[in-house]
């Protein structure tokens, strides 16, 4: 699989309504598709382009990381998909329907907004009962589902406490529970691990992976790049309302740099090596990891190690982190913008 071509005309656009989408050549079934999706806000002074010509496909059974700096258009996309705002141009399809506001589509979507408020005067289980009823759930089926989702997010013990007494992390968990209350096929989560402690993050990550393994599709908008890198199958990076890159993490995170594993060097050696662009990254169990950037030759790096009496243990290619990819992509987009402005 290669990095997907951006802004190409999607073939699925002509597919008639009501028919199940056919898998693509890789056997993937698209569940969220946008075609040239554009959102422009008209103000008195100028038009603000929140989203420009977005062509995005999210496939069934994957966790898709939707990334971008603040104000890049992530929340705008999510609001468009949920029918909370309306596109200036372009179209969308969710599952087998292009009618985004339809009840059928919304029955199959669970949404966790960023920083949502849940009524302080309700107990945790009452919040879920309220949202469950909006899906038409009632009686034993609703109570059973409330038990299940509370268990999944680790809130069973706090179910009878008022939301007003919840910590930020507990509110986030109850938010995730309300998104899952109808057991939807698609989950759209805006910053799902914000405010959670490391253990809770791990638990929520495990829940999300479990949902993916059950065949659910997850679109996660997040600034927690390490979390995204750990669980996402594919990512898309948005900047200035334009999709800058999209694809599987394995394809996007290139192996450009080299990691040298060495015995812990002296401070003077580290200083000397840094003059040649070799970066000391980590020290574990008497070993140190040195990063050799792509613009430094491996031959020269090894020679410098020998010259500074640093014992070399191993040499291996180093995969770029998602954070580095993010900075690289956003940085390049900024540079292009400046060039275009000049």
């Amino acid at each position: 699989m290669t990095q997907e071509t951006l802004n190409e005309e999607p073939a699925a656009e002509t597919q008639p309504l009501g028919e199940a989408r056919t898998p693509d050549p890789d056997g993937r079934i698209p569940v969220i598709e946008t075609y040239g999706l554009t959102k422009t806000y008209e103000t008195k002074t100028e038009d603000v382009h929140a989203l420009r010509d977005l062509n995005l496909t999210v496939y069934q059974g994957e966790i898709f990381g939707y990334l971008g700096p603040n104000g890049s258009g992530k929340t705008t996309t999510i609001k468009l998909l949920l029918g909370l705002i309306f596109p200036t141009d372009g179209s969308m399809a969710i599952m087998d329907s292009e009618s985004i506001g339809s009840i059928h589509v919304r029955r199959n979507i669970g949404y966790l907004p960023e920083g949502a408020y849940y009524p302080d005067f309700l107990k945790g289980e009452e919040v879920l009962r309220f949202y469950g009823k909006l899906y038409g759930l009632r009686g034993r089926a609703l109570e059973r589902r409330i038990d299940e989702v509370l268990e999944m997010v680790g809130m069973t013990g706090a179910r009878r406490r008022l939301v007003g007494g919840y910590s930020k992390g507990m509110r986030q968990r109850i938010g995730l529970a309300q998104a899952m209350i109808s057991d939807p096929q698609i989950l759209i989560l805006d910053e799902p691990t914000t405010g959670l402690d490391p253990i809770a993050r791990k638990e929520i990550r495990d829940v999300l992976v479990k949902l993916r393994d059950e065949g659910k599709t997850l679109l996660i908008s997040s600034h927690e790049l390490l979390e995204v890198e750990m669980i996402c199958d594919r990512v898309g990076i948005l900047h200035n309302g334009m999709l800058q890159t999209i694809g599987a993490l394995d394809d996007l995170l290139v192996q450009r740099d080299i990691t040298l594993e060495v015995e812990v060097p002296s401070e003077s050696a580290v200083h000397e090596l840094s003059r040649f662009g070799i970066i000391s990254e980590d020290m574990v169990d008497g070993k140190a990891l040195l990063r050799v950037p792509a613009n430094v030759s491996l031959y020269e790096a090894i020679e410098q190690c020998q010259h500074n009496n640093v014992s070399l243990l191993s040499v291996r290619p180093r995969r770029e982190t998602l954070e580095e990819l993010f900075v690289r992509v956003v940085g390049a987009a900024e540079e292009n913008k400046e060039i275009n402005q000049v």
Partner: peptide, 25 residues
């Protein structure tokens, strides 16, 4: 992705009641 993962799984949302019931509830 395996064939199993692309099968449409059964979920609570498939068993939800009709439009009128959803509306009134």
């Amino acid at each position: 992705m395996t064939d199993e993962s692309v099968k449409k799984p059964q979920s609570t949302s498939d068993k939800l009641p009709g439009v009128v019931s959803v509306f009134t509830l």
